[in-house]
Computed example of a mutant assay.
Amino acid sequence: MPPDTSRTDPRAGRLTADDARRRLEHARSSRVAQLRALDEGGRTAADHLLATQAEAIGKVLKEIDEAFARVDDGSYGTCLGCSKPVPVERLEILPYTRYCVGCQSRATA
């Protein structure tokens, strides 16, 4: 089944800025809800696992904010590693990603 291109810019095969913002807002609100749930769960300073989860969520929120900046400056959807377009399917799943799959695997290796 071919991908739904109604959400993409047909000229560039990229998500539109509005769609990218909607996906990023959803990702942000999900992470904020996760942080609230951790806080409401009675987390203590000694609970290392929950503290680690909260830290990881905070890092993702920072990445989401950086993705909003890329939308604003027009560089959203361009891999920071190779400067090629990040496939729209990847952006639909992980809207705050900075890299294509190849560059991401090299960045984490």
Rank of each mutant, 00 (worst) to 15 (best):
V71S: 11
L49V: 14
E89D: 15
C103N: 02
G81D: 05
I57S: 05
V60Q: 14
T97N: 07
I57K: 06
Q34S: 13
L38H: 03
G58Y: 11
Q53E: 15
L61R: 09
A51D: 14
L61P: 07
S83V: 00
G102K: 01
A51W: 00
P95C: 09
R11A: 15
R36Q: 14
E40M: 01
I64D: 12
Q34W: 01
E25N: 10
F68E: 14
D9Q: 01
V86F: 04
A46W: 03
I57V: 15
D9G: 03
P10N: 10
E40C: 02
R98H: 12
I93D: 02
V32C: 04
L91Q: 09
P10W: 09
A69I: 08
A46M: 09
K84P: 00
H48C: 01
A37F: 00
A46C: 02
C79T: 07
G41C: 01
D19Y: 08
A27K: 11
G42Y: 04
Q53G: 03
F68A: 11
P3V: 12
L91E: 10
A67G: 09
E92W: 01
L61S: 11
E92H: 01
R90M: 02
T108H: 11
G74I: 02
L50N: 07
L80P: 00
R36V: 13
G58P: 09
S83W: 00
T5Y: 09
A67K: 08
R90K: 09
E89W: 00
R70Q: 11
L50P: 02
A69D: 12
C82E: 04
A51Q: 12
I64N: 13
Y99C: 04
E66T: 08
T44K: 06
R36G: 01
G77M: 07
L49I: 10
G41I: 00
E25F: 11
D65C: 05
T97C: 08
G13W: 06
C79R: 06
P2R: 13
F68H: 14
G77L: 05
R36H: 10
R22E: 12
Q34E: 15
E66C: 06
G81W: 01
E55G: 10
V71Q: 05
A51M: 03
L35R: 11
V60W: 07
S30R: 12
V32L: 15
I57E: 08
L80G: 15
D18G: 14
K59W: 08
D65F: 06
E63H: 13
E40T: 01
A56R: 14
A51V: 05
S30F: 09
C82F: 02
T5S: 04
H48D: 14
G77Q: 05
P85S: 02
H26K: 11
E63D: 15
F68D: 12
K59H: 12
T97E: 05
T78H: 05
R28T: 07
L38R: 00
Y96K: 07
P85K: 00
R31N: 13
V71T: 09
Y99N: 07
L38Q: 04
T44N: 08
R21M: 06
L94Y: 14
L91W: 00
A69S: 09
L50E: 14
A27V: 09
T52N: 11
R70A: 11
A107T: 04
R11D: 13
T78A: 08
R7M: 13
D19N: 14
A37E: 04
